[in-house]
């Protein structure tokens, strides 16, 4: 379902015609938990640090969104990976987003692999999915690109 290939068939969701990023989104229900994940690739113009800050900001926004909607975030987590074993993990369980992992490289990599999972309680699956669509759109939009979502629903 996830693909790094854009409509023009080029890698990284970046084409000469579309600037489209395909974002895989999946949701599932596990007991009382609503679990939603997104995954996509980006060309991280401006470097990994800038991308990390943008994702951290969206995780903060997700925490506030949950509070405003009477939901409880079990966790909101994300990773940025740019090499086989080069990755940063970010997490928010309320309060400020924490970041750890590899040092961002001085030279921006040609591609970054991004994944986000939010596990929330006390709110509907669709609402969490909409929040994560907003998350992806905000991050991708800062690179002048736009998202096309590919959906997969799972209910357990």
């Amino acid at each position: 379902m996830i693909s790094a290939v854009c409509s023009a068939g080029m890698k990284a969701g970046h084409s000469e015609v579309g600037h489209m990023v395909r974002v895989g989104i999946s949701g599932r229900i596990h007991d009382e938990a609503r679990v939603v994940s997104i995954e996509f690739y980006l060309i991280p113009a401006g470097g990994i640090e800038a991308l990390r800050d943008r994702i951290a900001s969206q995780l903060d926004i997700t925490g506030k969104w949950a509070e405003e909607n009477g939901a409880f975030i079990g966790h909101a987590k994300a990773y940025i990976r740019w090499g086989e074993n080069e990755a940063i993990a970010l997490s928010n369980t309320g309060g400020e987003t924490e970041s750890r992992g590899s040092q961002p490289p001085e030279v921006p990599p040609s591609l970054a692999d991004i994944g986000v999972t939010v596990i929330a309680f006390g709110i509907g699956l669709e609402a969490v999915e909409e929040r994560l669509k907003g998350f992806a759109s905000a991050v991708v939009g800062q690179y002048g690109e736009y998202c096309v979502f590919e959906h997969e629903h799972e209910h357990h």
Partner: peptide, 14 residues
């Protein structure tokens, strides 16, 4: 991990 996207494995591998 319960989500489709694994986060912690990247950190452990790193």
């Amino acid at each position: 991990e319960i989500g489709e996207v694994g986060v912690d494995d990247k950190l452990l591998r790193a």
